[in-house]
């Protein structure tokens, strides 16, 4: 916790001049896999193949503590797969990775979450048939009432439930969802679902928040508020790693950008330096001739909608 406190002060000063990035990242090499001054996540030699296709082949990567790091790359670059690998939702063929020096190899996803690394999903996974407040309460950790033997006896967990509810209500108010408190989460709009998922992740009190395309399908009016929330996560001292296609957002809030293409990390650096990097331009052009990034966004969205429409079978598969 001490390390967090020092970091919090450093990020706060940097938040003012966010374009230059936090002090910890100043002077960091822009070569792929460069060393960071205070890495919270370190991954080595991670590969993941599906059949003959190598989806992820990351030699070395470090994620700076207390910073907002964006993971970008053309469609099919392996970003989401890499996310799944880091959070334990998929197992790599080779490699090792750690959170705060603790190896996460073979650690079940729920344990990864308990260690402080909580993720959201590309296709939001709010529990549509639970109310918004129940979704939030579910997020709280260490609930006595979640243990089988204690569950039937309300006097054992009633007090804690009140505390959890209080915390949930505070977060809902912050994320402007308090009016929806008693609604089924299924009735929320796409953007509200993203907000709810993020708020619910905060119920876990995570060190690292992993956001998989937080802006996908969010209407412009909500985008600004979402951006604000992501920044406020950093200001609270949390580390944020997010996958995103929306370049405006990447430029706006990220302290550091990592670019993936064909499973490999091809470049790192601040948003501006990365976007001027020839390797990055090549990577995007190589993947999609004559398409600029905004068209690419649309394509990805289309693919997502299609996937969503296809229902169960695909849902079973998209964890890969």
């Amino acid at each position: 916790m001490d390390a967090d406190m020092t970091d919090q002060t450093s990020t706060e000063t940097n938040a003012v001049a966010s374009k230059t990035g936090p002090a910890g990242l100043v002077g960091a090499s822009t070569e792929p896999g460069s060393k960071k001054s205070d890495p919270i996540i370190v991954a080595d030699k991670i590969t993941r193949t599906f059949g003959g296709l190598t989806a992820v082949d990351v030699d070395h990567v470090e994620i700076q503590r207390g910073a907002i790091t964006a993971l970008i790359g053309p469609n099919g670059a392996g970003k989401t797969t890499f996310f799944n690998l880091l959070t334990g939702f998929d197992q790599p063929n080779t490699g090792s990775w750690s959170l705060e020096g603790k190896s996460l190899k073979g650690v079940a996803p729920y344990k990864v979450a308990r260690l402080g690394m909580v993720r959201t999903f590309q296709l939001t996974k709010v529990l549509a048939k639970l109310t918004v407040i129940e979704n939030m309460r579910l997020g709280a950790t260490g609930q006595k009432g979640e243990r089988f033997w204690a569950a039937p006896f309300k006097f054992l967990w009633g007090k804690q439930e009140d505390e959890v509810t209080k915390k949930a209500d505070d977060l809902l108010a912050r994320f402007l969802l308090d009016k929806k408190r008693e609604d089924f989460a299924g009735s929320l709009s796409g953007g509200q679902r993203k907000l709810l998922e993020m708020a619910r992740a905060l119920m876990v009190d995570p060190e690292v928040v992993m956001l998989d395309e937080p802006m996908a399908g969010v209407n412009p009016a909500l985008k600004q508020s979402l951006l604000g929330h992501v920044k406020s996560l950093r200001d609270e001292g949390r580390t944020v790693l997010f996958v995103e296609h929306d370049m405006d957002m990447v430029r706006d809030i990220s302290d550091w950008v990592i670019v993936m293409a064909q499973g490999k990390i091809v470049a790192e650096g601040t948003a501006d330096s990365v976007m001027a990097d020839q390797r990055v331009i090549d990577a995007y052009l190589g993947a999609h001739h004559d398409t600029d990034l905004s068209e690419l966004d649309e394509e990805v969205l289309e693919a997502e909608v299609e996937a969503e429409l296809e229902g169960d079978i695909v849902q079973e598969e998209d964890s890969k």
């Binding site: 959070t87 959201t120 639970l130 579910l138």
Partner: peptide, 19 residues
């Protein structure tokens, strides 16, 4: 109870509960 809440959540989406 919260235990029941976890069950109902699993019914809907295991991965969300895991995360």
């Amino acid at each position: 109870s919260p235990w029941g809440r976890v069950l109902r959540s699993i019914r809907e989406d295991e991965d969300a509960v895991r995360s």
